[in-house]
């Protein structure tokens, strides 16, 4: 390559926004049942680069066999969840210049079974979703529904969930204790809270939350809230309100006494 060509290349790189710095990435490589290891790649840093950009650079230039799941690159599809420096994050939302100096480690989500490299099998989550009693509209409600703002406002937050499953990944009940069959996980308490608090929903999921959902396993350590890229207050606005509803039914004899009296009175009215 001539000096002129090199100079041209440098100018092009500058125009591309390259900072001139090289960042070292240590990326998990492996498939189930085979030897797995961290492989090191040196990636030229670009202004505003996110970890997903680096992974794409590796795929294009250094290791075309590297597997990673992604879609929108705008923190809205929830596909590129991984663990960067041990923190569950969306790779597309994690800027390289925000990370501390030194090698950046990228690993797949630990809670889910590995498919290949950074790709994990999250299908278990869809099975949990299918097991939840779905939205059950009230039968006596005239259509079209008229819903007041104050009745629905709480639910907007829950609708922001992009199903990245970072909350499920970080939840120690699933991650460290492997209680996949006993515990639905934070994402699905968000969904259940959204259904339970819906003004037009008629189903009662309180017992389901306690038994099949296993909400008693949650010990409120708030890691799910900490990692949520949509900043949903998972613990305060979904899990704790659901725990309180379970407490209403099973831990509050005074409230239960009044509810029983009311039910008895209603039954007597109906009989008359």
């Amino acid at each position: 390559m001539t000096d002129t060509a090199e100079a041209t290349t440098d100018i092009r790189h500058t125009q591309d926004g390259r900072t001139g710095r090289t960042v070292r990435f240590s990326v998990f490589r492996g498939v189930p049942g085979a030897q797995a290891s961290y492989v090191t790649y040196d990636v030229p840093e670009v202004e505003g680069m996110v970890v997903l950009d680096a992974i794409h650079y590796i795929q294009k230039n250094l290791d075309m066999d590297l597997a990673c799941r992604w879609n929108c690159k705008a923190a809205k599809c929830g596909s590129c969840s991984a663990e960067v420096n041990g923190h569950p994050v969306l790779m597309c939302k994690t800027r390289v210049d925000d990370l501390p100096e030194g090698t950046v480690t990228v690993a797949p989500m630990k809670t889910f079974p590995l498919v290949k490299d950074l790709v994990t099998d999250v299908s278990r989550n869809y099975k949990v979703n299918a097991a939840i009693t779905p939205f059950t509209p009230r039968k006596d409600e005239p259509t079209p529904w008229k819903i007041q703002q104050h009745d629905i406002e709480r639910l907007y937050e829950f609708r922001k969930c992009i199903e990245c499953f970072l909350c499920m990944d970080v939840c120690h009940i699933l991650r460290n204790h492997d209680l996949h069959e006993e515990y639905y996980g934070p994402r699905y308490f968000v969904r259940m809270a959204g259904l339970e608090m819906h003004p037009m929903d008629d189903a009662d999921r309180t017992d389901e939350i306690r038994t099949a959902g296993g909400i008693g396993f949650c010990n409120i350590t708030k890691c799910c809230t900490d990692v949520c890229p949509e900043h949903i207050h998972i613990t305060d606005n979904a899990i704790i309100p659901m725990k309180e509803r379970v407490a209403d039914r099973h831990w509050d004899p005074i409230r239960r006494m009044f509810t029983k009296k009311k039910q008895t009175a209603n039954a007597a009215d109906a009989a008359e």
Binding site: G30, V31, P32, G33, A34, A36, P108, K110, P113, L114, D121, S123, R124, K127, A130, A131, I132, T133, P134, T136, H180, E181, A203, R205, E208, T211, A212
Partner: peptide, 16 residues
């Protein structure tokens, strides 16, 4: 409504 108590077998954890 699906049976709320439906259980599933988690995929076998391999590799990792």
């Amino acid at each position: 409504a699906q049976d709320a108590t439906t259980k599933w077998t988690p995929p076998e954890r391999t590799g990792l």
